[in-house]
Design a protein around this nucleic acid. Structure first.
Ligand SMILES: [Mn+2]
Ligand SMILES: [Mn+2]
Ligand SMILES: [Mn+2]
Ligand SMILES: [Mn+2]
Lengths: 222, 222
DNA sequence: ATATATTTTTAGATTAATCTAAATATTATA
DNA sequence: TATAATATTTAGATTAATCTAAAAATATAT
């Protein structure tokens, strides 16, 4: 039944899952190509293969969506990715901007027993170091109330619970601003000109966030 | 310089390293084929490729040996394998017969920083769960006095420090006999007929070990 | 030393993942 | 609705790792 997939196949499924998270509609070839950093032609080839294996539903020129089986696999890979990131930060002392690349490799290690034990070792964490929810063994995960800093009104406050962008450079920028998960963000002012946001972090640090930054910060509003 | 190798290339280097450990001479094609569970023809192809990359010294019909660079890589993969096995047993609670397969995958994760931190997390272990020495970051490892149970005289004693065979079935057999690393082995008697050995384990458990078993147990003689 | 057996290499295919360029389909625009 | 622009697929190659079968080299045994 669950035949063993290549790393590449798993990565394609993950890409479709992520692309589909927001849109809900079938994901088009170019979108997948950009997620996977590859050519549209390669994507088409892979779509045929994954459809053949019943991991996706694919119609020529119409895009792809995950089948139940494909969805299960994608969720499992994401679970592994996030558990490993948690391990790297909590047990090995890495910081949050260093772990994504390594987890991209670790997420493909096959043993289910390994993941079950890792989960237990970490104390069944609900969120990873970037605030992303960790699916449980059944693929379900805990969502929470969240809103972009870009959408907070002047004078409002929120606790940072997640980031949309996981690039090392972005996270390093947040470190530089003394912003981390759990930080209290207060919107002191918003510029109408360039939509940058003047914030106060944890009641003392004043910082100007560009629109790009504010659109990648998720807070639980207070 | 240290270009990134495929899992397969790393596995070939490891196979050559292991085959060479005892013999010291160039390793022949069929030996590598049997280590790698592949055909002689495939091995020849790979030998050309590895020689091209200066990871081995290879002469047609004469066999292969590792170059300094190849040796460094092989040692590094072995270091990773043994550190991961140690992690799996000491931190995740796996038993020694369950970890080899998983470590075969984990040993190819690339980050040097990861391994440095894992080593530290584990307290810089010198030996893995099978008693095999763990090379340090420079590739050096600590050897120790050891002899096969098959070579112990009647009436002699030794402490189990290693096993030559890592197969799950072999290790499970030892579990069944209540033999583990650190066990005290006393040679009560040896059969001249089939070279089986009658031993007493930890001063109480009496067991008969076949020659095959006694040739795979390494002890520090007392 | 000659024949036989074994080992190793070469030749020719195959499968997975990728590419570029050309062809085709879809969508947007005038 | 034609036409142009964009998106997608197909065609034809390439590289890595593998295979089987045949050829060539080496080792063993009369
Ligand atoms: Mn990540
Ligand atoms: Mn993450
Ligand atoms: Mn092992
Ligand atoms: Mn081991």
């Amino acid at each position: 039944m669950t035949s063993t997939l290549t790393h590449t196949e798993e990565n394609y499924l993950k890409a479709i899952y992520k692309a589909n998270e927001r849109t809900k509609k079938a994901v088009n070839t170019n979108t997948i190509a950009s997620y996977m950093n590859t050519s549209a032609a390669s994507v088409t080839d892979m779509m045929k293969k994954l459809a053949q294996k019943d991991l996706i539903i694919y119609e020529k020129y119409k895009g792809a969506k995950l089948s139940p089986e494909g969805s299960k696999t994608a969720t499992s890979v994401i679970r592994k990715h996030r558990l490993w990131e948690t391990f790297l930060v909590q047990k090995l002392g890495f910081s949050w901007e260093e772990v994504h690349e390594i987890a991209e490799e670790l997420e493909h290690i096959k043993s289910d027993e390994l993941i079950a034990r890792l989960d237990k070792f970490l104390g069944y964490p609900k969120y990873d170091p970037h605030g992303d929810p960790i699916p449980n063994a059944e693929g379900k995960f805990t969502l929470r109330e969240q809103i972009l800093v870009a959408q907070l009104k002047k004078g409002a406050k929120g606790i940072l619970v997640g980031v949309q962008n996981h690039e090392t450079s972005f996270l390093a920028h947040l470190n530089h601003c003394n912003i981390s998960l759990g930080s209290l963000i207060f919107i002191k002012d918003r510029s109408k000109f360039d939509r940058s946001v003047h914030v106060i972090v944890d009641d003392h640090e004043e910082t100007l966030l560009t629109e790009m930054v504010s659109k990648n910060l998720l807070v639980r509003p207070l």
